[in-house]
Simulated assay, not measured.
Amino acid sequence: MEAFFVSTTTVALAEIGDKTQLLSLFLAARFRAPIPIIFGILVATLLNHGLSAWLGVWITEFISPQTGQLLIGISFIAVALWILIPDKEEDASSKLNRYGAFVATLVLFFLAEIGDKTQIATVILAAQYQQFFLVTLGTTIGMMLANVPVVLFGNQLMQKLPLNAARYAASSVFMVLGLLTFMF
C-alpha cells in the first residue's frame, strides 16, 4: 500500500500548476462539459501512466539493484528540482474541437503527459516499488485529485491556490524520496 499512497500524494502535489492542469482549465473553459473532460483525463492518464509504470518495472530487469537504486535516487532529486520550474500554458490544437470534449481531452492530455514530470515520476515510482498496478492506480488518482477540481471549479480555484507553496511541497516530497533511496 505504500506504493499506492506515495504515488497518489507525490503526483497530486506535482500536478499543481503543471501544464496538464492548465490544459484542464483550458478545456473546461472551451468545452464547458465537465463529465466528458473528466473521463478524457481519466482514460488518457490510465493509458499514459500504465505504459510508464510498465516501463519502470521492466527497466529494472536490465540493471543491477545497486545501479537501479542510484538511478532512482538521482531521478527523484532531478524531478524535485524540475518541479520548481513553473509550467506555462501551451496552445491546444483547435482541430480536435470537432471531435468533442472527450476525444479532445483524451488526445491532448495523453500528448501533454509525454515527457512530463508526472510521467517521469510514474516510471521512477514503478521502478522503486515494483508495483505496476498500485503505482498506476496511485498516480492516476493523484492526477484526478489535482485536475477534477480544476475542471469543476476552474477559475475560482486557481485564484486561491498558492501555486508556489504547492510546487515547493511537491519538490520536497521528491527530494526526501531521493535522499531516502540513497540511505536504504
Rank of each mutant, 00 (worst) to 15 (best):
M1G: 05
M1C: 08
F5V: 10
F5W: 13
T10R: 04
V11A: 12
V11D: 12
A12S: 13
D18F: 01
K19R: 11
L22C: 08
S24Q: 03
F26D: 11
L27F: 03
L27M: 06
A28K: 00
R30S: 12
F31M: 10
I35Y: 07
P36G: 01
I41H: 02
L42Y: 14
L46I: 12
L46R: 04
N48K: 12
L51R: 08
S52C: 06
W58K: 13
I59C: 12
I59Y: 05
T60F: 05
I63Y: 13
S64V: 03
G68R: 06
Q69D: 15
L71S: 13
G73R: 04
I74S: 14
F76W: 00
A78Y: 14
V79L: 13
V79N: 10
A80G: 10
L81A: 14
W82V: 04
I83R: 15
P86A: 06
D87E: 11
E89H: 03
D91F: 11
D91C: 05
L96T: 10
R98L: 04
Y99D: 09
A101Y: 09
F102D: 06
L106I: 05
L106P: 03
V107N: 08
F110W: 12
L111V: 09
L111M: 07
E113T: 04
I114H: 11
I114D: 01
D116P: 07
D116W: 00
D116V: 04
Q119L: 07
T122P: 08
T122D: 04
A126L: 10
Q130T: 00
Q130L: 00
Q131K: 02
F132A: 11
F133T: 10
T136L: 14
T139L: 00
L145Q: 04
L145C: 08
V148M: 03
V148N: 01
V150Q: 04
Q156E: 15
K160C: 12
K160T: 13
K160I: 11
L161N: 07
P162L: 02
R167E: 00
A169H: 06
A169C: 13
S172T: 10
V176S: 06
L177C: 09
L177F: 03
G178M: 05
G178T: 07
G178L: 01
L180I: 07
T181N: 14
F182A: 06
